[in-house]
C-alpha cells in the first residue's frame, strides 16, 4: 500500500521541475546563442591577413598580429614572475610554516587578493609600476600587475597538490639524511608538478581574458614588438582583449571586434579543455594512492 501523493503536492513538484528544466534550457541556449553569434559574425573576419598584419594607415592594412604577440608576451612574463613566487608561497605554507595562525593569515590574504576586482589592480599597478617605478605604460608594468592578480590561483592549486603528497615520502627522504630543501626539491616538487601545471593553465585563462587591469598599465599601442623589445620599459602594447574593447567601443569597427572575440572564444575553449585534463590527472593521482 503506497501513500497517495496529494494533487497539490504533485502540482507543486511538477511546477518546480518545469522551472528547473526551463532555467537549464535558458542557460544552455544562452551559451549556444553567444557562441553561435560570435562564430556567425566573426568567422568571416578571421583571415590570414588579419593575423599576420599590423594595423597601418599608410598601407591600409588592418591586423591583430601585435595584439596576439602582446598577449603571448604578457602571459610568459606574468607566469615567469608569479609562478616562482606562488609555488614558493605554497611550499612555505605546506612545508615550512609551523604556526597555524600565520598560515590562516596568509590564506586570508590570498583570499582577499583573489576577491579584488581587476580595475583596482589596474589602478594600483598604474600607481606602483607605471608611476613610482617609472616603467611607464608598458608590457612589463602590465605583467607585474597581472602577476599579483594570478598569484592566488597558483598558490591555491599548488597547495592543494602538495597536500596530496603523502607524508611518508617526506619522512623517508629526511630519514635518509636529506636536508629539507633537498627533500623538497627531489621528492615533494616532482610529485606536485600537476598542481603547478593546473595553476598555470588557470592563470593563462585569467590573463587571456583580462582587460581592465591592462588598460592603464600595458597601454593601447598596436605596434609589433620584437622578442627582445618587450621586456624593456616604455614599450606599451594592447592585448587581444584591450584591442577588442578599443575596436568595439572607441572606433566602432565591429568586424574586427568579432574576429577577435572568436579567437578569444576558441582560446577559452582550449584552455578549458586543458584545465579539465589537468584536473582529471590531479584527481586520479589523489585517489590512486
Amino acid at each position: 500500500m503506497t501513500e497517495k501523493v496529494s494533487i497539490k503536492r504533485k502540482v507543486k513538484c511538477a511546477l518546480l521541475n518545469i522551472l528547473m528544466y526551463i532555467s537549464c534550457a535558458v542557460i544552455c541556449l544562452m551559451l549556444a546563442g553567444i557562441a553561435g553569434y560570435i562564430i556567425y559574425r566573426g568567422a568571416g573576419g578571421v583571415t590570414v591577413d588579419l593575423i599576420v598584419n599590423k594595423p597601418s594607415l599608410l598601407k591600409g592594412t588592418i591586423g591583430i598580429l601585435p595584439n596576439i604577440l602582446n598577449t603571448l608576451y604578457i602571459i610568459i612574463m606574468t607566469l615567469a614572475i608569479s609562478l616562482p613566487l606562488g609555488v614558493g608561497s605554497a611550499i612555505y605554507l605546506n612545508e615550512y610554516a609551523k604556526n597555524k595562525r600565520v598560515v590562516r593569515l596568509i590564506e586570508l590574504a590570498t583570499e582577499t587578493l583573489s576577491g579584488i576586482p581587476s580595475i583596482i589592480y589596474g589602478l594600483v599597478g598604474m600607481l606602483l609600476f607605471v608611476q613610482l617605478f617609472k616603467l611607464e605604460t608598458s608590457l612589463i608594468a602590465g605583467s607585474l600587475t597581472l602577476a599579483i592578480m594570478t598569484l592566488p590561483t597558483i598558490i591555491r592549486t599548488t597547495q592543494e597538490s602538495l597536500k596530496t603528497v603523502p607524508g611518508g615520502y617526506r619522512e623517508g627522504s629526511l630519514a635518509l639524511g636529506a636536508g629539507k630543501w633537498y627533500m623538497i626539491r627531489t621528492t615533494v616538487l616532482p610529485s606536485c608538478i600537476d598542481g603547478v601545471v593546473t595553476g598555470c593553465i588557470l592563470s593563462i585563462g585569467r590573463i587571456v581574458g583580462e582587460s581592465a587591469a591592462l588598460l592603464f598599465t600595458a597601454g593601447m599601442a598596436n605596434e609589433v614588438l620584437g622578442i627582445f623589445e618587450f621586456f624593456k620599459p616604455k614599450m606599451s602594447g594592447s592585448s587581444l582583449t584591450v584591442a577588442l574593447y578599443m575596436y568595439a567601443k572607441e572606433r566602432g569597427e565591429f568586424e574586427i571586434a568579432f574576429a577577435i572575440a572568436l579567437i578569444l572564444l576558441a582560446l577559452t575553449f582550449i584552455i578549458n579543455a586543458l584545465s579539465k585534463l589537468a584536473a582529471a590527472k590531479l584527481k586520479g593521482k589523489g585517489s590512486g594512492r
Binding site: Y37, R41, G209, Y245, A261, F269
Partner: peptide, 25 residues
C-alpha cells in the same frame, strides 16, 4: 556533464566579449 561544461565555458569567456555581445544584441 554537458551543463557543467557549458557553465565552465561561460565562466571562461572574457568580460569584453560579454560586453561586445551586450552592445550588439
Amino acid at each position: 556533464t554537458v551543463i557543467r561544461n557549458a557553465v565552465d565555458l561561460l565562466s571562461g569567456i572574457p568580460s569584453v566579449v560579454y560586453g561586445l555581445i551586450g552592445m550588439i544584441l
